[in-house]
Design a protein around this nucleic acid. Structure first.
Lengths: 197, 197, 197, 197
DNA sequence: GATGAATGAGGATTCATTCAT
DNA sequence: CATGAATGAATCCTCATTCAT
């Protein structure tokens, strides 16, 4: 059936992989043509520019992670504490093996593209915001953090994770991620609450 | 007198700025020629390749930060707790205003180059290791962390900072850095020690 | 119709001329663009590298000469002695006028490229071998040379011709070629056989 | 003592080697600086241009071979036939081992430079002429060739040798040279005289 | 005389994009 | 819709030569 549409999704899927590994700017359209076995004509039929493809790839990353991290895990049916643990474990599981070297699709593009292109930056910023909002709600549900500090604390957890993935990438070992996840779990769950200052 | 050496240092200095803003791969040699007002011949007289320049820039970043963060602050003469506070405040101060958008020179290159080039990756990994070692010693001096957890905790602090700088870059506000610094201070200093698990 | 293929052949044809005159390394891609009136994009669409073009040019030389010298002349329908005479006359005819200065396409590249690039060298060596094989058969057919000396003698005839073309090139006169052809004819045909030693 | 002059000779000597292997145009001045351990200033003090060096190298080749081949061997004190044999054996000896791949300094430059530069071409043409003249005299002394054919025959011998060195270079074996030398010896010495046509 | 820094034209190649079919 | 040929600006780099010291 909808062969054109399928083909387009396929290109985005292949491109998402390549761009995660090589970065957006270092990925040439030719790289994608070779990886997906299509011709130039077809490519430019589906995407007016390379930039269009880039945005499609980012949107795809966001769709995937929003569904997995936010909708399925953070807004799922388990008790709030459990949901937070799930999120941390899901993170840990996503960055093992070859994925350690590839790093986080959002973190990678955040750093590579923020200064170059507003449409990348805004999408990624907005994704991080949505994530922090969802985590913030869960933290409140779990009664772990006072309401007025929940968003800040959620953002800190997320940025800690991004930082750990960054260090893991440059060290080529998932140890820093395990380390951060373990410290976050510890801090969050073995204390009555985090309230000072 | 030492005109040649000066000239080379100047190029590295200009390039360090440009590369921090645009990234290594997106910075063309021409960008550097224009920014520094020199000719191609002069450039390639001092640097055999663009890669050579990149390495010189990384080495310069490392020199600067090692001196400031490690030697002057973490290994300085103040009490251990004070030194840690200084490090956090120095971090905060370094990423205000236009520097928020530029991000961390190490984090930027870690993400951009780790998969492309081992000589960048290794230098940066080794810098993060040295930083974590120095911070680890200070944490032990301050009696804040049990000895066997000190390195892991130090690495977590550093990766939290890197993650905060990343989020700040994509959000174009230093708020996430202030946030993380404040949480780190809080966790570190207002509790007897961090020992559970 | 087959416009693409034609275009590629045209480039090879123009390049064959330019390279024969200027040598492979001294011929810039720009030289070829100017001579053939095409743009850089078109060139690199057809040839991945300059080296690719070089190989295409060598293969074209080989095709042409194999057809003319080996298939049409040495393996033709005339008596063996006549075929050898034809070969010598064809050689003579090919290096008159402006062609004296250009020299032999194979000899030129043999000397220029043998030390630089195995793929050029091997192709040319194999062409000379095939030529010597075909001439060797013809010498045997003509009963001019004892079987066990035929290949060596064929190779000597061919190398004499190459040497004569070389001297003709540096002297800018076809006299050395005429001279060598006449001596070869004489030695081959006016003696019962060449058998001594 | 004459340190400047010595240095210059050294540069020419090093350059002669490099140019014989890589060709004149493919040899960069930097190649020569590296091989001889001198600086740019010194080089351009001795040679106004790269071309100047090239000419010095050719003149050096010519000096060496004229002394060896013409003065010592062809115009030496042995009987004429012996002198010719010596010349052939000297040739054979000069192109063994690594020298097979390097080819003949004159043949190499003849082919590479004849179309590009008259001053190279003329020097080499004149060297080949002097060699042919000397060989011609020796052939006459030996009563092997009628007077009016002696120069032509000498030139044919020389061009045969050059051609054999060329084929040897592309085949990377000295066999073609041995082969040609043996055939030349045979033709020259085992027949009363070469007179027909 | 000697040094090596500086020059800038020219080299091969890549790239996103357009266009004729 | 789809193809792949064509475009030409831009990229990294090399080179012979000049120049200030």
């Amino acid at each position: 059936m909808n062969k054109g549409a399928l083909a387009k999704e396929e290109i985005v899927s292949v491109a998402a992989d390549v761009i995660r590994s090589k970065g957006y700017q270092s990925t040439s359209i030719n790289d994608i043509l070779v990886s997906s076995g299509i011709g130039k004509g077809k490519f430019f039929h589906h995407f007016k520019t390379k930039h269009d493809l880039g945005i499609a790839v980012v949107d795809r990353y966001i769709d995937t992670w929003k569904t997995r991290m936010i909708e399925e895990i953070l807004q799922g049916d388990f008790p709030a504490k459990t949901r937070i643990l799930h999120m941390l474990e899901e993170t840990l599981g996503s960055f093992q093996n070859s994925n350690v070297k590839k790093g986080c699709p959002f973190g990678n593009l955040a750093i590579e593209m923020s200064e170059h292109d507003a449409s990348f930056r805004e999408r990624i910023a907005s994704f991080f915001h949505e994530w922090a909002m969802a985590l913030s709600e869960t933290l409140k549900d779990a009664n772990l953090i006072p309401e007025d500090r929940a968003y800040d604390y959620a953002e800190h957890i997320i940025s800690s994770i991004e930082g750990a993935i960054l260090i893991a990438k440059v060290k080529q070992t998932s140890k820093p991620i395990e380390n951060t996840v373990s410290i976050l779990k510890n801090t969050l769950l073995h204390q009555r609450s985090i309230s000072h200052e």
